[in-house]
Design a protein around this nucleic acid. Structure first.
Lengths: 123, 123
DNA sequence: GTGTTAATGCAAATGCATTTGCATTTTCAA
DNA sequence: TTGAAAATGCAAATGCATTTGCATTAACAC
């Protein structure tokens, strides 16, 4: 049976409240603002639980490693700013619907990663 | 000074001749068909040289790890078949030109990863 | 309240891709 | 042809994210 702990709800809250995907370290540091004793291994363990129960989604980012976001979000893309190094959500889908892949290829899913400067860093 | 060796040209040839990106292990096994003594460390060392001199491009694939392809290729996308596990090149760009990212974001580059079944595996 | 046992914190262990040290082999300029 | 230096093969070492063992703490059913 699974129990409700302060660290568990801190981790859930941090992920739910974020408008962009985060890595383990960022979840850890944000979570520490809520429960200061929070430990990295606990973050790994709880994120894995959340993945298993489908609450959270894993993003394998080409340059930023493994990130996590709420599974509640609709399909969207990710923008990596090489100024502040953050990964932002980009709502909607900029992929053309037809003829994406050559004849015979069945496209079941896709991911788009954008790179550049965010508003704060491009000024 | 850099010298021409049979393993070096085997590695170059394997990468040049391929119509899809390959990981170290695949470069190694294809290379072994040309020079059977070929060693993994040698592949790593030579691929790094080719990267440095701009002949080869590195792809950090979300699910397939680090792949390599000729830098000669034009911009294209990559399709991962979860049947045969190969990554295919998809010529052209299926990304809409405008309004990809919200106002203020400067998009300098992008990558598109497609997932599904290739013609051989979807039959 | 109390006891059972899940969850945590910590540090050590693991797994894996990549790199490195070194003895040996090979290239290539002289 | 020969010798210095580059490259190779091999195995061990590294770096890193992630996992695990274990003693301790805390949740919650009773």
């Amino acid at each position: 049976m699974t129990r409700q702990t302060s660290q568990r709800s801190a981790i859930e809250q941090v992920i739910q409240d974020s408008d962009r995907p985060m890595g383990i370290d960022e979840i850890l540091s944000k979570g520490k603002e809520i429960v200061e004793s929070l430990n990295q291994a606990t973050v790994y363990r709880n994120v894995k639980l959340l993945l298993d129960c489908g609450t959270v989604r894993q993003i394998l980012h080409p340059t930023q490693g493994t990130l996590y976001e709420t599974a509640e979000k609709d399909h969207h893309h990710h923008f990596h700013c090489h100024g502040c190094n953050k990964v932002y959500d980009v709502p909607g889908c900029a992929l053309k619907e037809d003829g994406i892949a050559p004849k015979g290829f069945v496209v079941e899913d896709h991911e788009v990663f954008l790179y550049g400067k965010c508003p704060e860093c491009s000024g």
